[in-house]
């Protein structure tokens, strides 16, 4: 999936995260995280972000995550949403089991 424009998903409410994503043609993935639980979950957030992008075939992107203590599945959902907005594609809900 190719990103066409910058996009944002999520909020900076407590227990949510705001994901900003930018096209990064041919440059791979660059994920950065700000989080109040960075010391204990920083690595996990980066790992989940890369995993989620891989699932949707995003190979090149700059991702900035402003996390306010969101659970893992929230982070994954926000990342996927931001990626689809950036790619100007509709999410196929049938893919979700």
């Amino acid at each position: 999936m190719e990103l066409k424009k910058p996009a944002v998903a999520g909020t900076v409410e407590s227990c949510d995260c705001q994901v900003s994503i930018f096209p990064n043609p041919g440059q791979g993935l660059d994920v950065s995280v700000e989080s109040n639980v960075k010391a204990i979950f920083g690595d996990s957030i980066i790992e989940s972000t890369k995993d989620e992008l891989a699932k949707h075939g995003v190979k090149d992107a700059i991702v900035q995550i402003n996390d306010k203590g969101a659970f893992d599945w929230i982070i994954r959902a926000r990342v996927a949403c931001a990626a689809y907005r950036a790619a100007e594609q509709k999410f196929n809900w049938k893919e979700v089991e």
Partner: peptide
């Protein structure tokens, strides 16, 4: 719910 936190 939270995942396994990395030890400090």
């Amino acid at each position: 719910l939270c995942g396994t936190p990395k030890p400090i």
